[in-house]
Design a protein around this nucleic acid. Structure first.
Lengths: 206, 206
DNA sequence: TAATTAATTAAACAAACGTTTAATTTAAAC
DNA sequence: GTTTAAATTAAACGTTTGTTTAATTAATTA
């Protein structure tokens, strides 16, 4: 789907409001007002509110596989590769945290009739790349064979998102006062914690 | 707050619908219809839709601290204690997953004016108990001192919730066909994975 | 420049929203 | 059995919802 400037402008406002107040908690009138366009433009450009969300998914979930694969082709040690993969995934989901939040919530609903193809595709690619990486490490005797590979990604992403969803709790626990120090915390301390966790898990012998 | 049978009946229907379709995605008329009471009963009993959610929090977040503390008083080894703590926390959040889901989403909104005291209290208790446990293990030389203690709980709960929020994806990955096998998976494989992760993290030497 | 397509608008649409009202039925207390 | 309080009801309240309409303006093409 080709998007012009105005469409992207609308999508970015929608992303912000959906993440802040939920899909159902945001009205198309709010979006149109904040994006400074007429209400009818949303139907005109996207067809409906739901299809607008689908367009947002397509817009945000692009170019994931390529970047992840370029990390894996590097000639560095296995622990270093874990560090790079985790750092990349955390950076990526932190950048797209708003869209992920919307998806996390809307996707788990039974009712909604939204097409999550783009999101699931990225999830699938993410899983396959990591599965191949871990199996390689196991074959070379670097990683433990007792690890449940499909649950590695939930541990990485889950740790980040639980932190993010409860950021009001954890920022007060860590004395993070503004948005900048939160970004910094994510890219240093939180990333390091997840790297440490995954490295420990993959080398742990019960 | 004292709750009579009818109020509990309403709250349990509300919990189910809120978790399925979101707070904003659920109407009081839906709740009243499914709970087989008149719409006005919700205002009559709880005052408003938002206060009904607060009542649900109070109802679901009780008796957490006592149960967790009784585990810690057991005379078992540190790794065994980790296993028991993780199993308890996972069992508990899985049982209350619907309410946690509602909170996870509503709490991270800036707009909403809901009182999350009961939820935050449980979170705080959970953190303090685990902090004390880990520090004890560190003092005795069993646990690594490089661990970021406030991020242990996000790793436990985050792994569970990321799995739960993407259950449609992971159940197809694990070939889980019905609700029973999902329950079983959570209490065996997923719990074991998280136990393994936390034990590895706490004993990992970089 | 004229014709055609795209973009933008204000107004209207029916449906659904949370909450309140006032009347009625049921239960408890005396 | 009468009085008082609690529970339940159908109907109405004013807003807000997503979407559509039909008219107008702007941009592109011929």
């Amino acid at each position: 789907m080709e998007l012009n400037e105005k469409q992207i402008q609308i999508l970015e406002v929608a992303e912000k409001l959906f993440a802040e107040n939920g899909f159902d908690g945001t009205s198309v009138r709010q979006i149109s007002k904040e994006a400074d366009v007429n209400v009818a433009m949303i139907s005109y450009y996207f067809g409906s509110k739901e299809k607008m969300l689908e367009a947002l998914l397509g817009y945000r979930m692009a170019d994931f596989k390529i970047q992840l694969k370029s990390i894996l082709s590097k000639e560095i040690s296995y622990p270093e590769k874990i560090d790079e993969i985790v750092a990349f995934v955390v950076m990526r989901i932190h950048k797209n945290r708003r869209t992920h939040k919307i998806v996390n919530f809307e996707y788990s609903k039974d009712s909604r009739s939204i097409n999550f193809e783009k999101y699931l595709q990225q999830k699938d690619e993410n899983y396959r790349v990591i599965e191949a990486f871990v199996k390689n490490g196991q074959k070379e005797g670097v990683f433990s064979k007792k690890v449940n590979i499909p649950l590695i990604v939930p541990t990485i992403m889950g740790t980040y998102f639980h932190f993010y969803y409860n950021k009001r709790f954890y920022t007060s626990l860590h004395n993070l006062t503004d948005e900048i120090s939160l970004d910094e915390f994510v890219h240093t301390i939180l990333t390091k914690h997840i790297q440490q966790t995954i490295k420990a898990l993959l080398t742990y012998a019960d």
